[in-house]
Amino acid sequence: MSGVIDPREPVLTVEHLSMRFGGLLAVNDLSFEVRRGDITALIGPNGAGKTTVFNCITGFYKPTEGRLTLAHADGARHLLERLPNHAVNRRARVARTFQNIRLFSGMTVLENLLVAQHAPLMRASGFTVLGLLGLGGYRAAERAAIERARLWLDRIGLTPRADDPAGDLPYGAQRRLEIARAMCTEPVLLCLDEPAAGLNPRESAELTELLRRIRADGTSVLLIEHDMSVVMEISDHVVVLDYGVKIADGTPGAVRTDPRVVAAYLGVEDEEVEAVEAEVGLVLPSAGAEA
């Protein structure tokens, strides 16, 4: 903790992360970095351990081994593997979305975004005591929270549906709302688990735009994604997992041509990689979509 802050220092450092479920080693000695202000993609075939890594980072699993360090811009460091589940979001400021959307479907779109601002609102309501008596600045805080929610509703284009139940929204809108809800917790690092799954091309393009905007506003993004067109278009950095082991790490261009990645996705022996590459003309995106 030197106190001098390097703006390019990694926001998240994963060191020797291993996760074991009984006899299954889901993640094996994985190390990688997510640099501040980057969009980092975590890719790999099904069952490669991507979501397990996510669950370790966001506190849903306690890793068997390894260290996960999250550094804030002000130099504060949090060891994620030691924090309780909810503190990963509240203190370390890591937000996440889920592969199968987890919205509060019986609550309205606006309420979903207000639940995400629980911690500041809780403080403003004097941990319920003052709010119950109508004292303190709770009203003002709630107005501010609604304003923040409105800002995100405008960004994801859901303002007209603010008072509709979240479960009533079309699929693409639910995905965007889940991202907006995560962003309402003001995260330093946003983890997205397959945000483009099930989206049509137009919705995918909107998602790409939204993620660029989030990056521009200073939140680093870590995403798992199977849609290679999205990954190649927006990531600054790609980490490839296979059987819980990192097999490649670099820029999208470098990873795309990495023979080991191609082999992992197409499932051929290393010696045959060259032949297969020639045959398919290196169309990783379609291969990824099939995988």
Binding site: T58, G59, H86, N89, R90, F98, R102, F104, G106, A182
Partner: peptide, 12 residues
């Protein structure tokens, strides 16, 4: 509605 989503949003 969803306890897991709650935890991911920092709710104790």
């Amino acid at each position: 509605e969803d306890e897991i989503a709650c935890r991911s949003l920092g709710i104790n």
